[in-house]
Every structure is written in C-alpha cells, then in structure tokens.
Design a binder for these strands. Structure first.
Lengths: 133, 133
DNA sequence: CTGCATCCAGAGCGATACTG
DNA sequence: CAGTATCGCTCTGGATGCAG
C-alpha cells in the first residue's frame, strides 16, 4: 500500500483537488491492482456467484479472485452472501459504495477507449526513435 | 502489463462502456502504478525540472522517478526537453494527451476524497468482525 | 544536475494440491 | 462449489555508486 508524505501542493491541481494526494494514491492502490476493476465491472451486471465471476473474467486464478474479493469486501465495495446449502453457494454483489465507484472508473474507461490509439502510436514512435541509436 | 482474453461482456457495464475491458485494464496498469498519478498531478502546475519534481513528491527514489517519467514519455503523456547547458537541465511537461488524462483522474480523486471515510470505516468493521472468531 | 547500472529484499501472482 | 495452504517465480522498487 502507498504511504506518502504530506507534501503540500501550492498550485492546486487544476484548482480542483485538495492537497490530499495521499488519499488519491491510497484509493488508486486499491483500484489499480490487477483484478479489482475487472471484478467491479463484471459485478455491475448484478449479483454473481464465485465461479460465474471466475468464468466471466477468464484468466484469473482462483487464488487471486478470492484475494481480490476479500479486499473489496473489506473496503466495503462488495458484499458477500453465503447460502448454507449443499453444495455451498456464495453470491457477490456491489454495495452502494461499490456502485458509486463505477462512475469515475467508467470515466477512466472512456478516456482509455478514446485515447488508446494515440497512446499506442506514441509508443511505436518512441520505440522506433530509440532503435536508430 | 496486463493482457486479458477478449471476454465479451453481454450486459454492458451500466450500459455505457463497450466490452473492451482489456483496454481499460491496460490503461489502469499505466495509471495505477505507484507514482504515475502523483507525477501527473505535480506536472499539472506546469513544466518542471527533474529535481524540482523529485522534491515535490518527496519520498520517491531517483530510479523510480526516472522510470515513471520514461514510461509517461513513451506513452505520449509527458514531453521531455533537454537544455544543452552546463549543468544540464531537463524539463518535463504534460502533453495535451497527458493533460486530458487529468479529467478522469481528478474525478477519481474526488471520489477518493468523498469516500475515504466510508472505506476506512468499512475496513475497521471488517477487521473487528474478523477478530472475534 | 541528470540519469544510468547494479544489487537486493519483498510483494504480487500463478500453479497445484487439499478441505468442508 | 467455495476456499485455504504451499511453493516458487517474476517484477517492483529502494539504496548506492558511477558518468556525462
């Protein structure tokens, strides 16, 4: 997890964000890990069982899905409901907090979609320039 | 870097985001790393020299700042200008693409700021519940 | 001042096997 | 079906030292 000094930003980041960059980073550490966003996106469709989720995401290990879900549950973004049946059944569902996270994440996703070509081109150019040394 | 299967999402993530979750993840891998967002935020104030940037951020190693800046430069988010003086001077500055990234990142930052208390409380509750086993 | 190279500890994560 | 435990690899990232 991140832990930053309280570096006071004088300017003010486009005049909007308070100088609590540590907070932003902390949340980004949660959101930025390998599977969190995928899980949140998948759960947007509604409650889902463990293996359904696993199949949807595709190439996630059972271990990592469990860990990611535990983390999200701990942060209050996902709720976990156990049905004491046999075989056991566990449903995962976004909490209101988790659903509210979708708004900024979707915004980021739209930025990603809109600018992916530009980024790929920039990368190609950069790599090409680095080859003729 | 992430590399996901092309898992087609039928539902559609709140009906907004296309089923290109891979793209989102790829960008998140860039944005989600430890220093990227901090650097972008700092550069929001305007062009900055290497050490000025380093001092602003505070507890970043020289190595990681260099690596982060190279990555951002490669992705076309930051431009690097060398002044062939002595001692050498290098200015880093957000490109238009980099500046456009601020919008969604600031949105995420505002979400973080608004919901940090809720998340911390959720964590406390979760940890407390786990203690009385 | 800037920025590479090296070394090294630790985190992240996948594969596998096992339990209720 | 859901979850835990263990192993081992890779990658991150911090510290240090050297060079233009």
């Amino acid at each position: 997890m991140l832990e930053l000094e309280h570096t006071d930003v004088p300017g003010g980041v486009a005049g909007e964000l308070p100088n609590r960059c540590g907070d932003v980073s902390q949340v980004l550490a949660r959101v930025g890990d390998k599977w969190t966003v995928l899980v949140v996106m998948m759960l947007a469709a509604g409650p889902m069982r463990f293996n359904a989720l696993k199949r949807r995401i595709g190439k996630v290990s059972q271990r990592m899905l469990t860990l990611t879900l535990r983390g999200l549950e701990r942060d209050g973004l996902v709720s976990r409901t156990v049905f004491p049946t046999v075989p056991p059944r566990v449903d995962y569902e976004l909490t209101p907090l988790g659903r509210s996270l979708q708004t900024p994440v979707v915004a980021l996703g739209e930025w990603a979609f809109a600018n992916l070509d530009a980024m790929n081109e920039a990368r190609r150019d950069y790599d090409a320039r680095r080859e003729d040394l």
